[in-house]
Design a protein around this nucleic acid. Structure first.
Lengths: 329, 329
DNA sequence: CTGTTAGCGCCTTCAA
DNA sequence: TTGAAGGCGCTAACAG
């Protein structure tokens, strides 16, 4: 491996001088600079970031922990993060937990040992353990998707969004509205969206039919099955279905179609996420746009502020959302 | 920052001993080991990977260069890569070029300077420059999606897949088949798929109508517009459309629907990629499944073989594909 | 403007 | 079974 020392020798200067031209710091004569540059060109020398990091304690790398890389949401968020980081010359070190919560802990440690300059956690379930770990973190940290107490967080207004969507159903004259949610250990998606839904029904004096409320995993298949259960167990068929993600909604839609229930005539349907899918299914899906790229970008900006400008204060960023009204509701 | 030295002092041993228990190498008395472990626990010490890398020249990080993170294809490939790497304790350092070819060069350099143990490049356009850079790379390298001469590559059988799909159109009695492709500088998607299509037509003695052949960017909007152009410029309307990606096909489908052309009665349509989208549009899209996760996994396995077992030979891996027959063709 | 020197935190001989 | 010493490649005082 070719090092700064080799360059120095070949260019007849000291390592310091080489370092200076490399980092454009301090005075270097045009002459020396040229010689150094020439040797660098010739040799194809690339300075070692590790050695550099060891001295400077900076890596220009941000760790991103996420529950699953191959979902549209995650991909869009990462995209938003990368946009901002790349501009500052930072890179992403991926840590994919594949939905295994235990991995979150591991990665939190691993990323520290890799001396990442900051960590963004796309949080799902927030166990006590995780919260503890985060608190003890020495690295700048930003939570994404959940509001973590005492930590800078970028999150969606899950509660109000769900509320507003539910209002829409009611305004359209529905009072038999089914709900397909996810486990409440996911506070944002599971708990808050459900609360928004239930509270709104209550507010309007609509009684809650238990058979209308189903819980599923994060997949369209699960959405399909949840829809099936709702149809089977309900005495009176609901006239609308609110699913907490587009995938679930799409699964439900498939089920409805197969049962010969025509959308949007016989049944209204809405999801959350403004996924690509939602635009292209028939009928197009009414959904909530949480602007995932922007979420990623905001989280990245927060991290950059901490990393570059050493900003210490805890910032909360609640993102806007918009209801995208399409044919399904 | 707490270092191995601190641990050594607190545990009343030398740094060497601490290092030994950390790496489970060499002899350490149970007694010493316990003391060290205890101090590590108490202090929450995490060894610096940088310092380690500096000595060992290993980072347990693989750089992945890709053209765009927020596409389903990329996400699925990355997922496949991560699956394999994670098992070996390796992580992904992301390098997203956002379709800017120049960035590929930059990142190739950057990743080297970060001493990644290997590089996987999801290649698109293969300029001379890139090829040169790759040749001079000192790090294990695998190309994904394109077959790069003299380099280990995992790629799809684009030509034959396009051929087979075209055969399917012909077998179904079509001889007025339109084609929506992408720029040929993308050898796999742009050039090979087009050649597969054209050669097959020729083989069957079907003359090629110039107005049936369109080129677009990688987006559904572009697919829409390409479809529009085909309909406008063609004297006789085609009876089938083959688009080289599902996105393009979906865009075309939207256009057709808006013009009141009914699928699949009035027009057949096929795409490539077996995207989520393809399953849920109506009619469901006939498409080619290239198994992107597997592609990523294979690439990762190749890299791991090189990195861990120091395997030097150039390996080529042409992936299987399957035609997924749905309602659109 | 340039070079000398001293580490950053870790692993790895080598010797005890 | 343990420790001392040296060095990985780089930057940052400090002197010239």
């Amino acid at each position: 491996m070719i090092t700064i020392k080799d360059i120095a020798e070949r260019a007849n200067v000291s390592r310091t001088t080489v370092s200076r031209v490399l980092n454009e710091s301090g005075y270097v004569s045009e002459d020396a600079r040229k010689r150094v540059m020439k040797v660098i060109e010739e040799t194809g020398y690339v300075p070692s970031e590790h050695a550099k990091s060891l001295r400077t304690k900076k890596t220009k790398v941000v760790g991103v922990i996420l529950p699953k890389i191959s979902t549209e949401t995650a991909a869009r968020v990462v995209n938003g993060i990368d946009d901002v980081l790349a501009k500052e010359g930072y890179q992403i070190l991926l840590a994919n937990t594949n939905l295994r919560t235990k991995k979150e802990l591991e990665y939190l440690k691993l990323l520290q040992s890799r001396q990442v300059d900051g960590i963004i956690l796309m949080a799902t379930n927030l166990s006590k353990e995780i919260l503890m770990q985060i608190k003890e973190l020495k690295v700048p940290f930003v939570a994404l998707g959940q509001d973590i107490p005492d930590q800078s967080s970028v999150f969606y207004d899950d509660y109000r969004a769900a509320q507003e969507m539910t209002e829409l159903f009611i305004k359209e004259g529905h009072d038999r509205i089914a709900f397909i949610g996810v486990d409440e250990s996911d506070r944002a998606v599971g708990y808050l969206r459900k609360r928004g839904f239930l509270d709104t029904l209550e507010k309007h004096g609509i009684s809650i039919e238990e058979t209308y409320i189903e819980t599923a995993e994060f997949s369209s298949e699960a959405g399909y099955e949840a829809m099936e259960r709702i149809l089977e167990t309900s005495e009176e068929r609901p006239t609308g279905v609110f699913a907490v993600t587009d995938r679930l909604a799409i699964g439900a839609m498939k089920c409805l179609k197969e049962k010969g229930i025509v959308l949007p005539q016989d049944m209204k349907l809405a999801g959350v996420g403004a996924s690509e899918l939602s635009k292209y299914v028939t009928p197009a899906l009414t959904t909530i746009d949480f602007q995932y790229e922007e979420a990623g970008a905001e989280a990245a900006k927060l991290i950059m502020n901490k990393v570059i400008h050493n900003q210490k204060t805890v910032k909360k960023f609640k993102l806007n959302y918009g209801i995208i009204r399409k044919d399904s509701l």
